[in-house]
Each structure stands twice: as structure tokens, then as C-alpha cells.
Amino acid sequence: MTPRVFSPLVLLLVIAFLIGPFFIIVAASLSGGETLAFPPQGFSLKWVAKVFTVESFRESFAVSMFLAIGGTAMALVLGIPASYALSRYKLPFGETVRTIVSLPIIVPGIIVGLALLRYIVVPFGFNITLALFLAHTALVLPYAVRVVSASLNNLRSDIEEAAVLLGSSRAGAFFRVVMPNIRSGILAAFILGFVTSFNQVPVSLFLSGPGVRTLPIDMLSYMEITYDPSVAALSALLAFMSIGIVFLAERFLGFSRYV
């Protein structure tokens, strides 16, 4: 068999393997039956509707949203100045700083969660929400620094000097000249951070308490109790949300340039 015939067939199988399960989830969630099954037994939107009525899903969705938005915003507040310092200044220990802020990407999340629980949350009596917020911020920080740095490195630094020579202060030059030009990079970092944080499981495993847990964790524990298609419906909804966000980001920002 020559590659000319062989290639499209392989590609078809690979794409089916990668995307197929997603369609099965969608189909299963539209089932009229009581248990998870494929092909679906009849058609109904009842499981999709049920997702919105499950109290714990609503609560954990709010928690996950708060973490994804708040944690990413916090990571950007810390990460933008750090990226700026790393790209524009001769920073003493610059490489060390870069390594420290990038480490959370390398260390498995479950370890970060456990360490945070044991040595910060318990001894200092932090509440779980705060701990989750800190953990998600740390988790998103490397992405924020990486994407914003890439954006800054694509921008000439002499425009800041030009702004200063035209009478602007250093800080003024940053806000008038740098910020407007890295805006789409920051937005891209925000979206990447949001999706990463929202889908993140291991870091939150140990960080759950009464009434406070992230949505993916809630889904995991719901699955242990019930075998109905509502988790499939929720999974499908979340997948559509992520895909929608990324699609819009690519459409309007050229997201893939930054990631």
C-alpha cells in the first residue's frame, strides 16, 4: 500500500479516535433512558435540563468560574509586571525569577494541592476558597508570564524611550504605549489561563471542603454515586463552552500566535 492511499485512511481513524468520544458524549446526554447508554434510547433534553437543577453543580460551577476568572486575573496582575521586568530590564537573578514563576507548570498539580493543604491551609487556618484561589493563581502564573512575555518580546522597546523623550513618565509610557500594544496578548493569556484553570483537576483534589469544591471535582464525585447521563450532559456543555471561547479567541485574536 502506498502512503497516498494509506494516509487519508489513517488520518480518518485518528480523527475518529480523537473526536469520536466527544460526539458519543453529546449523543449519550440527549438520551431519553435512565442510564448512560449509546446508542441513546430515544431523544430527550431532560438530562441537559437536569444539569441546571442539581444544586451542587450550580455551586461548584460558581466556584470554578470564580477561580478561573479571579485566579487568572490575579496571575496577570502578578505576571504582567514580572514579564515586563524580565523582558525590559537587566534583572539581577532574572533566570531564577523566571524559573520560580514557571515551576508550577512542571510540578504535578496534585502535589501542589497537597503541599498547600498541609503546610499553608492547615497551619495558618486558611479557608478552602482562599487556598483554591492561591493554587489556581500559581497554576496560571506560568502561562500568564509566558504569553505576556512573548507579546512583549514582539514589541520594540524603543517606543517607550520615544514616549519618554516626548515628555511621558516611565509609568506613563507603559500605560500609553506598551499596554495598548500588548492588549491582545493579555487577552490571549487570560483565555488560556481561564481554560486551564477551569479544566484543572489534580490541584483541587485535596482542596475541597464543605460546600466548596470545583466543578470537575464535583463531577468526579457525582459519577461515583450516580450513573445517569447528567454528567455526560454537563461534560458536553462544558466542552461546547471551552470550544466556543477558544474559537472566538482564534477568530478575533489569532490566539494560536500566542500559545
Binding site: Y89, L91, G94, I100, P104, A115, L141
Partner: peptide, 26 residues
Amino acid sequence: RAEALALALPAAVFAAIVFLAPVVIL
């Protein structure tokens, strides 16, 4: 240098306290 440190330290200190220190202790 002072300006550079003022910009970079918050992120580095945050990552060191929230992430690095607990993991190292663990």
C-alpha cells in the same frame, strides 16, 4: 535595578511562598 525588582518580586515571592516552599517541605 530597584525598579526591575519591584516589578518582578511580587510574582516571584508569591510563587515562592504559595508554591515552592510548601512543595519543598513536602
